[in-house]
Simulated assay, not measured.
Amino acid sequence: MTDLRLVVFDMDGTLIDSQDVIVQSVETAFAQMGRPAPSRPKILSIVGLSLPQALAQLAPDMNGADLDEAVARYKHSFVETRKVSGGTPSPLYAGAMEALNLLAAQDETLMGVATGKSRRGLDHVFAGHNLRHYFQTAQTADDHPSKPHPAMLHQTLRDTGVDAHQAVMVGDTTYDIEMGVAAGFRTVGVSWGYHAPEKLRNAGADIVIDDFAALNPALENFWG
């Protein structure tokens, strides 16, 4: 049995505040296809799912070639929106960098990412915020079924050699929490993201925190 422990973070809505570019990209894709755009709350409710599954939830009548077109238009809009901002990635939430530094200083703690982003999108965030060195494992939608399937988290365990009972999933959506529960992880919900705290609790979150300063005490309580 290993003494190592693992903290896996979601990206959008947990570490970075990407809501504006996501909403704009969905609105643009739907407008280009002559479809009415979903409401902002509806769009944000599907953040965390892999892109085809997310768009299919927003427009259940869309499938086949139409869904493929929507995915392509969303990706194009996302890249173009990023270009307008000078290529700057979405901002980190307040306290995120301090929390990562605190965990990185703990010899026994490893970190990972499990995100609905593509590998290209995650690499952009890593490069823009100089985050890559914090994470020993990084899983994306390119290589796994969509959340809440636990495949991403199973891979983080294989990559790090950590036992599931020593691992924690941190995320802002029910998809993150359900994925963590399915993988045998402890789960921390964050209240500043895209799903309401009560939904996170109902999905099985062991705790919901209101700021990053509360993360390390919650983790130590799990492992104490």
Rank of each mutant, 00 (worst) to 15 (best):
T2Y: 13
D3Q: 04
V7G: 03
D10E: 01
G13L: 02
D17V: 03
D17W: 04
S18W: 08
V21A: 03
V21G: 01
V23G: 10
Q24F: 11
Q24Y: 08
S25L: 06
V26F: 09
V26C: 09
E27A: 14
T28P: 06
A29C: 12
G34P: 04
G34R: 08
A37M: 12
S39A: 15
P41C: 15
P41L: 09
I46W: 04
I46P: 05
I46Q: 05
V47N: 06
V47A: 07
L51D: 04
L51R: 10
P52F: 04
A56P: 05
L58N: 11
L58P: 04
A59G: 10
A59W: 06
P60E: 04
P60Q: 01
P60V: 04
P60C: 07
G64I: 02
D66Y: 08
L67G: 02
A70I: 01
Y74G: 04
S77C: 10
S77Y: 08
V79K: 14
V79F: 14
E80Q: 14
T81M: 14
R82G: 14
R82D: 12
V84H: 09
V84A: 08
G87M: 07
S90N: 10
L92T: 04
L92F: 07
L92C: 09
A94M: 03
A96K: 00
E98V: 06
A104H: 15
E108G: 00
G112D: 05
T115H: 04
K117D: 00
S118M: 06
G121I: 10
V125Y: 00
V125D: 02
A127N: 12
A127Y: 08
A127H: 14
G128R: 10
L131Y: 11
H133K: 13
F135V: 03
T137Y: 10
Q139F: 01
T140N: 01
A141P: 07
P145D: 07
P145R: 07
P148C: 08
M152E: 02
M152I: 05
T156D: 00
T156R: 00
L157K: 05
R158K: 15
D159S: 12
G161R: 09
V162W: 02
Q166R: 14
Q166F: 10
V168T: 01
T173H: 07
T173W: 07
T174L: 03
D176I: 12
I177N: 02
E178C: 05
M179G: 00
G180S: 05
V181M: 12
G184E: 01
V188Y: 13
V188W: 08
V188I: 15
G189N: 07
G189Y: 10
V190I: 07
V190L: 05
H195Q: 03
H195T: 05
A196R: 02
A196P: 00
P197V: 13
P197A: 12
L200M: 03
L200W: 05
L200R: 03
R201I: 09
N202M: 12
N202C: 09
A205L: 11
A205Q: 09
D206T: 11
I207A: 14
D210M: 07
D211E: 14
F212S: 01
A214W: 10
P217K: 11
E220Q: 11
N221F: 10
W223H: 12
W223P: 08
